[in-house]
């Protein structure tokens, strides 16, 4: 069970009822983040981070110094106005923070680039809505190949740093969605494999303690190996050049949106280019320097 990570809503009773878990605690309001972190600290669990999903734009959020010791994954509705964000930039750089923005529009993609260039880590949310593949490819080029020091933009920086041509690379942990590793709890403590399954009420266990049962262990193991189904089903993703990096994450978009094919092909080329750069300089080029 140690390799399992649990995503749960902020509910003091629920958290107190868990033991020995690695927790991602979800709140919908930044002002609850400190209390959520305290609830984990007062329980017998370990905090991975607080996931803040808010309907507010980033420039509307009020960060303060009490958050300095709280690891934060913030998912605002949009980037907003840079000018209104400016007074908070210095504080944002001091926080243990990653800001996630949707990859569906140019404003958000520009926002991620702005933040990275100013030393604030970011992540791009890929779906479930439309994805601007072209804009995303530009952002990826910046994240991976720009030589001037900048913060990371995930999953690109992670992929560039960890790509191995001989094995597939799963980067869904950035979204707390790695199959069979991140489990999602509702307020009653019922367990689902993914956020989508949680939202649609598809639970595979009644509680986290039930996950240790043999039948549920088998389900978890099956979910971890679920990528094999692409090959068993002879799915087009299995023969796609980008498979090692996407692992079929965008299969549901096919055939109407084939943007992922060109995108991951380009990503592979970029990663190889990044690796060649590193080899030439005989060291890994740091993607971010404090």
């Amino acid at each position: 069970m140690n390799s399992i990570k649990v995503v749960c809503p902020f509910d003091s009773e629920l958290i107190a009822g868990l033991e020995g878990q690695n927790l991602v605690v979800k709140v919908d309001d930044l002002s609850s983040a400190v209390a959520a972190a305290a609830a984990v600290a007062n329980s017998r669990n370990r905090l991975i981070c607080i996931q803040v999903e808010t309907a507010e734009r980033l420039d509307q959020l009020q960060f303060d110094e009490s958050l300095t010791t709280t690891p934060l994954a913030v998912f605002p509705a949009a980037f907003g106005n840079f000018r209104q964000l400016t007074p908070q930039l210095s504080l944002l750089r001091q926080l243990n923070l990653r800001v996630y923005l949707g990859g569906d529009n140019r404003e958000n993609l520009a926002g991620l680039r702005i933040m990275a260039s100013l030393g604030i880590h970011g992540g791009v949310v890929l779906g479930p809505g439309p994805i601007d593949w072209e804009g995303l490819a530009d952002l990826m080029t910046y994240a991976v190949l720009e030589r001037t020091a900048h913060a990371t933009i995930e999953p690109f920086s992670y992929i560039a740093g960890h790509y191995d041509p001989l094995s597939p690379l799963d980067w869904s942990a950035f979204y707390f969605e790695q199959p069979g590793v991140y489990l999602h709890l509702d307020k009653q403590g019922r367990v689902a494999f993914s956020r989508t399954e949680l939202q649609s009420g598809r639970f595979f266990a009644e509680s986290i303690s039930a996950c240790g049962e043999q039948a549920n262990q088998r389900k978890i193991e099956q979910r971890r190996e679920s990528w094999r189904e692409f090959f068993l089903d002879n799915h087009p993703c299995a023969s796609c050049v980008g498979w090692k990096l996407c692992l079929g994450k965008f299969a549901g978009r096919l055939p109407s949106d084939k943007g992922c094919v060109g995108f991951f092909e380009e990503m592979l080329e970029l990663v190889r280019q990044y690796r060649r750069q590193c080899e030439r300089t005989d060291k890994e080029r740091p993607l971010w320097q404090p």
Partner: peptide, 13 residues
């Protein structure tokens, strides 16, 4: 914005 950031990076380095 993208081009501004590119220019800023170019000038910084």
């Amino acid at each position: 914005w993208e081009n501004l950031i590119y220019i800023a990076d170019f000038l910084k380095r």
